[in-house]
């Protein structure tokens, strides 16, 4: 199952801080969109609103024909690597979403098996997360989200804790897995090349207030290979996005430095 995700003019205030201003993103079913932006552009807030853990002050989020009001199994989440439960085995972690929603029937069990197989975890079912590498743990996170067979897959900087090489491998792995089910994927990242490499479109956010700066179509053919990252069109696109956020990033770094002083 795969469905549309519409973020309709979502705004959010925290006191005086305007975290999001009228963010508007419409995703087709099966589309892969990445969001890039500097620290403080409201990415986390946006994710929490889509999750249904935070309520927007204006606007709303729709999945298929349904308005988001609370967390639900129509959304699968992949977080940074530390979100696996240490006291659950790989299998139990992968089945967690289904278990919490009371959907762990025979069919779902079969799907957990398939997803572990798809993510390259067959044979590791009874391992503890502690026994796995960072890359492997992210595979479990992905399997856990996919096992729900969600309409939309939301990935919040899932590879940020990985080293550069593992990261590249995981990017190609993610695309391979995505080609199988073609979920609607909203992928949040700091890394511009990662966003371009994975996506159909890249949404560039600005900060203070968090808002959509520009949406960039990526018309690289699929399936994509890591060699594409060195093509001139690719590099030009990275430069362009970097140009859009550079001032924001510099400001955010400056602010961090002032706060630390």
């Amino acid at each position: 199952m795969s469905d549309t995700l519409e973020i309709r003019k979502v705004s959010k205030l925290f006191g005086n801080l305007e975290a999001l201003r009228s963010v508007d993103i419409k995703m087709e079913a099966g589309e892969f969109i990445s969001i890039v932006g500097p620290s403080g552009c409201g990415k986390t807030t946006l994710m929490r609103i889509i999750a249904g853990l935070e309520e927007p002050d204006a606007g709303n989020v729709w999945i298929g024909g349904n308005k988001v009001t609370a967390p639900g199994p129509d959304r699968g989440f992949v977080f940074q690597s530390d979100s696996l439960l240490p006291w659950r085995t790989v299998w139990q972690n992968a089945a967690l979403g289904l278990k919490l929603n009371g959907q762990l029937d025979a069919e779902a069990t079969e799907r957990v098996r398939n997803m572990l197989e798809l993510t390259g975890l067959a044979g590791f079912e009874s391992y503890w997360p502690k026994q796995l590498s960072g890359g492997m743990r992210q595979r479990v996170n992905l399997a856990r989200a996919l096992a729900l067979d969600p309409a939309v897959l939301l990935m919040d900087e899932p590879f940020s804790a990985l080293d550069a090489q593992t990261r590249e491998i995981m990017q190609t792995e993610l695309l391979r897995i995505w080609e199988v089910g073609r979920k609607t994927v909203l992928f949040i990242t700091h890394q511009i090349d990662e966003a371009i490499f994975l996506s159909d479109r890249v949404v560039v956010l600005g900060r203070r207030p968090g808002r959509v700066r520009e949406v960039i179509d990526v018309d690289l053919p699929r399936p994509r290979t890591l060699a594409m990252k060195r093509q001139p069109e690719f590099v030009a696109m990275v430069d362009r996005i970097w140009g859009l956020i550079e001032t924001d990033v510099r400001n955010s770094v400056k602010e961090d430095a002032t706060n630390a002083a």
Binding site: P71, F77, L96, L100
Partner: peptide
């Protein structure tokens, strides 16, 4: 972060406590 993750998957307060 673990509580947040489990809540995203729709866990009730009781499920958050037990799990």
């Amino acid at each position: 972060k673990l509580i947040e993750a489990v809540r995203c998957f729709g866990a009730s307060p009781l499920q958050v406590f037990w799990n």
